[in-house]
Design a binder for these strands. Structure first.
Lengths: 115, 115
DNA sequence: AAGTATACCGAATAAATTTTCGGTATATGA
DNA sequence: TCATATACCGAAAATTTATTCGGTATACTT
């Protein structure tokens, strides 16, 4: 994997929270795992635009930060499963608020930038 | 300025919201402007770790996205002022939730990573 | 006259993040 | 036997973001 170059900002609570979820797919991963544990391959199916590699890297950081738990089953072919932790669950209201905001304001930005 | 290379993700509401606030200082800028309008130099005083250049760039994007409004006073030396828009204000509950989360969990990450 | 402050922007550089590609290992099914 | 699938990881390349530095212009203060 690659290292977190920028240490988590411990002084500003806002940037602390942001630094845990602001990379490309972390919030989406948490949003998927809130409903059920998933294997990496399932997660990739759920988020097909994310490459397996980036999911791998970001899952590792989420685990390191205590927001996600990894379970390895000692089987072959290998099987592992990622689930959200109780700490991770406390971020769900924030994820939800962002989801809601995005839905509500989608049209505005479509008119502005896209489609 | 430099261009937004990655267009805002219009398909996923979560990533839409994230893309508006996930660069280094945008959430902090909104958190400052919620209380009062500020001039660029004041903002830099409030967020001394951010370089004036990055504040400048991110303010410009915030204005472009309709979250912040810029007022230029036709004076010399030049004066301008940035204020949060009503759309920007609707993001404040999310900012607040992140602030709260960060405060509540600060100790955990200090033990883990720092100090 | 020189220094300071204002806001802003261009461009080079540096740094961080993501993508792409290939490789590890093992078991199952064709 | 060979293709497929699993999870994972290293490394190079590409991309995105931030920093650094210098420059625009003007007015006020020393």
């Amino acid at each position: 994997m690659y290292e977190r170059k920028i240490p988590i900002d411990l002084d500003c609570p806002l940037r602390l929270t942001m630094s845990l979820i602001d990379s490309k797919w972390k919030s989406c991963i948490l949003d998927e795992l809130r409903y059920r544990s998933m294997r990496p391959s399932e997660l990739h199916k759920a988020l097909p635009e994310a490459t397996p590699r980036v999911l791998d890297i970001q899952l590792k950081e989420l685990v390191e930060d205590g927001l996600v738990k990894k379970t390895i089953f000692p089987e072959l072919p290998p099987r592992s499963e990622y689930s959200i932790t109780s700490l991770g669950l406390t971020l769900i209201p924030i994820i939800d608020a962002m989801l809601e905001w995005g839905k509500k304001n989608k049209d505005l930005f479509e008119r502005k930038y896209g489609k």
